[in-house]
């Protein structure tokens, strides 16, 4: 971002400054390059400052709660509930240690969360890849209605799904079991995976399969050896997003899980008791719940836009 002579290097910032130059009565070329006093330089510098300040505020607003959670998880009992915020303190691992020892060991809950979220994400991706491919390539009548039905099951309010599922699961004895949770998570992960994978498959030109078919592959072989490897990033993105949705679930687990299937978010909410809250342990659980999903999410950042808009918008 140097002078008005190089508009390409500073495209987004050009609009305002040029107006200023024109107001000068000289036109673009007349603006003396490198002169700090020129209206162009001044205006673009000001807008750069504004952008910088706004982004700094956004960063603070975004990160302070997360950093505070991380910090607090290393504080002892008095520091964590001190009336004046403690930034410098003697760090301790007690909160994490307490989570994994004693009667309320967190270990099983982590295992339940991993199982329920992992299995449901895996099933969703496998079935979603098959069905998504079919949906992307089929030319059947009523395809639109099919697609709409799939997306509307993804968008159904959790509260409206939980009530009948509760009744059905109670009849089938699926309350307080990992399979029950997996099925509950599939109600939103499966339609999501089908729709998203179909968007990824639609990006792959059909001519590729045709050449594979001409080369003597069966449809399945063409799918398995030609198409699927091309959508690897789609498969990974779908898996990660399904995992995040299921891992973060509270609304289903609070109804369906019990001692044998309690997940991490439930364990966290159960630290809130009538007698008070151990905020040290709670921030520690929070960190354990949040950090893995953040890492997983950022790992697929390139495809996040596609994933989270269900393929309606592509990024980068």
């Amino acid at each position: 971002m140097s002078t008005s002579m190089t508009p390409r290097s500073s495209v987004p910032r050009q609009a305002g400054p040029d107006q200023a130059v024109r107001g000068n009565g000289h036109g673009i070329l007349a603006a003396p390059p490198g002169m700090p006093q020129s209206p162009l330089e001044e205006s673009s510098r000001r807008s750069r400052w504004v952008v910088g300040i706004l982004l700094a505020v956004a960063l603070l607003w975004t990160l302070v709660p997360l950093l505070w959670m991380l910090l607090s998880s290393f504080k002892n009992r008095t520091d964590v509930t001190s009336a004046t915020p403690q930034v410098l303190f003697a760090p301790t691992l007690d909160n994490y240690r307490n989570l994994f020892t004693g009667s309320n060991n967190l270990g099983p809950y982590i295992w339940h969360s991993v199982l329920a979220a992992g299995i449901s994400a895996l099933l969703a991706v496998c079935l979603g890849a098959l069905a998504g491919y079919g949906l992307a390539r089929t030319q059947m009548r009523g395809k639109k209605h099919l697609a709409f039905w799939i997306i509307s099951t993804r968008m159904a309010p959790i509260a409206a799904v939980v009530v009948p599922l509760f009744l059905i699961f109670r009849g089938l004895g699926l309350i307080d079991s990992i399979p029950g949770l997996v099925l509950a998570y599939l109600t939103f992960n499966l339609p999501f995976a089908i729709w998203l994978m179909s968007a990824f498959f639609a990006e792959v030109p059909a001519s590729l399969e045709e050449s594979a078919l001409v080369a003597g592959c069966t449809r399945w072989q063409a799918f398995r050896t030609v198409i699927l490897p091309l959508t690897k990033s789609g498969l990974v993105t779908t898996f990660v997003l399904c995992l995040v949705f299921a891992w973060n679930d509270y609304a289903f687990a609070v109804v369906f899980s019990g001692p044998n299937s309690q997940t991490l978010p439930i364990a966290a909410s159960q630290l809130v008791t009538q007698t008070g809250i151990d905020w040290g342990q709670l921030t520690a659980i929070g960190t354990i719940v949040v950090v893995p999903m953040m890492l997983a999410g950022l790992a697929v950042r390139r495809w996040l836009v596609t994933g989270l808009t269900l393929g309606a918008v592509t990024g980068e």
Binding site: L63, D249, P265, T283, G286, G297
Partner: peptide, 25 residues
Amino acid sequence: LLLLPMFAAPVIVGLLGRYLTDSTF
């Protein structure tokens, strides 16, 4: 960095919010 909150479990966001807005600490 700005995307991070999106991946946090809403229940943790709620509990964290409760911690941050507690009237004593």
